[in-house]
Amino acid sequence: MLDVSALLFWLLAAITIAAALAVVLLKNIVHSALYLVLTFAGVAGIYILLQAEFLAAVQLLIYAGAVAILIVFAVMLTRRGDIKASNLYNFNYLAAGVVSLALLVIIILGNGRMAWTAAPAPAPASNVAAIANAFLGRYAIPFEVAAVLLLVAMVGAILLARGGKPER
């Protein structure tokens, strides 16, 4: 007998996986990009099932919002020729399929044989508060590093995208 959360899980999992498959299987890169957004949304749904609401919000904002739009822009800017055949396979896709499948088998079997040991403790009442505390407490250093990283990425992206025009 299925309860609601299980039903939701199967639904979200099916949507996420199907969308991910569409991303890699479709031949039109614009379609791929759109299915990528759907995958991100599905993952956000899974986060909610796992009671990580803040993370789901972040996922929607950053991934489904910013990243996906960035990708769509890039697709548009580099469009050339037939958009219907813009996302083809390369010559070693068969080998790639075999390797991916093998890795999948290994991961699933490896995880499947685990007897996970859970820590018997209740979840904190508020995720957001706990996350905020962690960011400014234990994880202050990676937090600052991430800030520097974003700055670096910004500078780098501007430099590289602007291209080889020497400054005057």
Binding site: V145, L149, G156
Partner: peptide, 12 residues
């Protein structure tokens, strides 16, 4: 994060 800071900076 340290690893990625290093890697991405090196890409640029």
């Amino acid at each position: 994060t340290g690893l990625e800071l290093m890697t991405i900076t090196f890409c640029i």
